[in-house]
Each structure stands twice: as C-alpha cells, then as structure tokens.
Simulated assay, not measured.
Amino acid sequence: MNRNLRTFPILITERFTLRELSKKDSEEILLLRSDAEINKFLDRKLSKTLDDALSFINSIISNESDELFYWAITKTGEDKLIGTICLFDFLVDLKKCEIGYELLTEFHGQGFMIEAIRKVLEYTINTHGLKMIDAHTHKDNQSSTKLLQKLNFKKMEDIIENNPNVILLRLTT
C-alpha cells in the first residue's frame, strides 16, 4: 500500500513525539548531517548547506512507503527535531527490517534514544509483525553498541559487506 493513501504513523512516548519528517526540519537535519561527532562512524558525505539538507529531506519524503519509515524525534509539545529514527530494507518474507538513528550531540547521554527506539520497536513488532530487526554500527561506536544491547540486540558473527569495521546487531522477537 502506498503511504500517500494513509496517515503516517505518529508515535508518542513519555517525553517525545515521533512524527513525519518535513521541509521545516532542514536546519536541524543540516546540524545532524554536518556534525563531525555524529557522523564520524557513518559512511556518508557531510551536508554543508541548507540545500543539502533539503535535498536529503525531499529524497526521504519522495521515497517513504511501507518499506521506509523516517521519524523526526521531537520533545512532546515542541516541534523542533532533536534526532531521527528510520526503518528500512524491509524483507517481508523474512519478517525483517533494519533500524537506524541519530541524535543531536547536545541530547546524548540522557536516555532519549533508548525511549524513542523502544517505541519504534513496539510499533514495528506489533503493527508489522516483524521477527528480526537489524542494526549496523561501526565497531568503535561503543555508545551505539551499548544502546542496542540494552534493547536486547545481540552481536552477530556475520561479516558485513566485507567491511571489518561494521558489526551487525540483531533483535529477534
């Protein structure tokens, strides 16, 4: 089903509202995608301008479907994006997808991402009936690895695309 025919799933936690990404998020997306600390473990080109951020947002909006969910994380009652979570690479026959996330540096270490990811996992499992959720992280990104392990993701021995710097963590429900 094309997402344009239905409402994007808004998720609410104790402290956050996870909503659809929009063009008005361009300044915060630029901050996320240009911050050297956030991006040091990611294999992507840094954004340099608002146009780069808008181009990224437009690509997300045009590709959203039942196979890509991209949430803006906002504090409830506020509209400013503080991070993002996405679900992608759905393999319906295997009941599996991948999760990715990022958070503005000033919000690190406050338990925000674990709360937001828990809500997305609940949605993914309960609404889509998925049995496996994968996360790829850099072997040196201990914060991300520890976060995923707190959420019951387990390190897998799989080699990731011949990249020895990336590890696979998997949640099996």
Rank of each mutant, 00 (worst) to 15 (best):
N2R: 15
R3K: 08
L5V: 10
L5H: 14
R6H: 08
R6A: 14
T7D: 14
F8S: 00
F8C: 03
I10Y: 13
L11G: 06
I12L: 14
E14V: 11
T17M: 06
T17A: 09
E20A: 14
E20P: 08
E20Q: 13
S22W: 11
S22T: 15
K23G: 10
S26G: 09
S26A: 15
E27L: 12
E27C: 12
E28G: 09
E28L: 09
I29V: 10
L32R: 02
R33E: 11
S34L: 09
E37F: 11
I38P: 05
K40A: 02
F41L: 04
L42A: 10
D43N: 13
R44V: 10
S47L: 08
S47M: 13
L50V: 11
D51P: 05
D51H: 13
D51K: 15
D52R: 01
A53V: 03
S55P: 11
S55C: 13
S55A: 13
I57N: 02
I57R: 02
N58W: 07
I60P: 00
I60L: 05
S62P: 04
S62Q: 09
S65P: 08
D66C: 14
E67N: 15
E67S: 15
E67G: 14
L68E: 06
L68I: 00
F69Q: 04
Y70T: 00
A72Q: 03
G77S: 06
G77W: 10
E78V: 08
E78T: 10
D79I: 11
D79E: 12
K80A: 15
G83Y: 03
G83S: 08
G83I: 01
G83D: 00
T84S: 14
L87M: 13
L87D: 04
V92S: 14
L94S: 15
L94C: 13
L94H: 14
K96E: 12
K96V: 05
I99E: 05
G100A: 09
Y101L: 09
Y101C: 05
E102M: 11
L104K: 09
T105F: 09
G109W: 06
G109Q: 03
G111E: 03
G111K: 00
F112S: 08
M113D: 01
I114G: 06
R118Y: 10
R118T: 06
K119F: 05
K119H: 09
V120Y: 01
V120C: 07
L121T: 03
L121E: 01
L121C: 08
Y123E: 05
T124A: 15
T124M: 13
I125F: 06
I125W: 08
G129A: 01
G129N: 06
L130Y: 03
L130M: 12
M132L: 11
M132P: 06
M132A: 12
M132D: 15
I133G: 01
I133S: 03
D134Q: 13
A135F: 05
A135N: 01
H136F: 15
T137I: 06
H138I: 02
S143F: 01
S143N: 07
K146Q: 00
K146P: 00
K146D: 00
K146N: 00
L147Q: 02
L147H: 00
L148N: 01
L148E: 00
L148F: 00
L151I: 13
E157R: 12
E157I: 11
I159T: 08
E161C: 14
N162H: 07
N162C: 01
N162V: 02
N163H: 06
N163E: 04
P164V: 03
N165A: 12
V166F: 08
L168D: 07
